[in-house]
């Protein structure tokens, strides 16, 4: 992926709102063509970071460059090089599909020939063939979101920022949306995306986990999972996960527990994996226990682990 210098560089970036530090001393770089994911709870500072990188918000201190342009010195220059799409799909609902495309093409100053070409591209990628005259507000959420992405990249920007682009969209549409992101990346477009969804984060080449405005962890999926080296995770099937968690917390081998779907994940200290002992404890407490097996850490395990360590 790395084709040399980073297209986005962030150095000690900080943004305060009064006394509140929304983004605190953030540093990282993003390579060209990379899909870079921002993971974090609400209010962790993901959106604030993106807004600073888009030239919508000035940093309080620190620097950042996007496509070689300093966001503080030339925010308008940044805007010419990027596409941006936020969680609210920013289209005009009273306008038709064609009118929305024409509007953004006009704002970005596309030539007539270019417009024809990009119009076709957007219609195709959004799956809107023959629906150019439909009012945007009548489109289903997933389609509208693909159209919004299309409008945001009409001018073929080399860098795209997506702020929770798949909020409130059905899983099938999400999957389709991520295929579009993969395609963009394959064409050399750098994509910086924030998300809540762990499965989406798995699509990213690298992930930055943010907590309280700070960078809590950064790396590829497998690098992040390496945080569990030396510890193991077991998945326990039980009829009563809440009760099971309470019992397991008292076991000396168990570092911590979390609910994972209908099962319980327990993190065991230092490769201590006496599964029989765990099973015995659970049955002694009157719980029915199904399978107990070691599992690979998921990104969710990583996320929760990072959050826990940050909180303590």
């Amino acid at each position: 992926m790395n084709t040399g210098a980073d297209t986005i560089t962030v150095d000690r970036l900080t943004r305060r709102f009064g006394d509140f530090v929304a983004v605190d001393d953030l540093s990282f770089g993003v390579h060209q063509g990379e899909i870079f994911g921002f993971l974090g709870a609400n209010g962790a500072g993901k959106s604030t970071t993106i807004r600073m990188l888009c030239g919508l918000l000035l940093p309080t201190s620190g620097t950042a460059t996007v496509g070689g342009v300093d966001v503080r010195r030339d925010p308008e220059g940044v805007k010419r090089r990027i596409g941006y799409m936020s969680q609210k799909f920013s289209l005009y609902e009273q306008l038709t599909v064609d009118e929305n495309i024409r509007f953004f093409a006009g704002i970005y100053g596309l030539s007539r020939a270019k417009f024809e070409e990009r119009h076709r591209f957007v219609i195709e990628m959004a799956g809107l063939e023959g629906r150019g005259r439909s009012l945007t507000r009548d489109l289903p959420g997933g389609v509208r979101q693909r159209l919004a992405l299309g409008c945001a990249i009409l001018h073929e920007p080399p860098i795209v920022f997506l702020d929770e682009p798949t909020g409130g969209v059905d899983p099938l549409s999400r999957r389709r949306f991520w295929r579009l992101i993969d395609t963009l990346s394959a064409q050399g477009v750098t994509v910086l995306v924030t998300t809540h969804y762990m499965d989406e984060a798995e699509h990213c080449h690298r992930i930055a986990i943010m907590h309280a405005g700070r960078l809590a962890a950064l790396g590829t999926t497998s690098e992040l999972k390496g945080l569990f080296r030396g510890r193991s995770i077991v998945e326990i099937d039980t009829g009563n996960p809440v009760m099971a968690m309470r019992v397991l917390q008292d076991a000396p081998a168990v570092e911590k527990t979390s609910v994972f779907g209908t099962a319980v994940h327990a993190v065991l200290r230092h490769g201590d994996d006496d599964l029989a002992e765990l099973r015995q404890r659970l049955t002694a407490a009157g719980l029915t226990v199904g399978a107990i097996a070691p599992v690979e850490p998921s990104l969710e395990d990583v996320f929760l682990d990072v959050m826990d360590r940050r909180a303590s």
Binding site: K79, S90, F104, Y108
Partner: peptide, 13 residues
């Protein structure tokens, strides 16, 4: 309110 202003703000307008 509908969020299009922010979208406009990242364009060259």
């Amino acid at each position: 309110e509908i969020g299009t202003l922010e979208q406009l703000n990242v364009t060259p307008i």
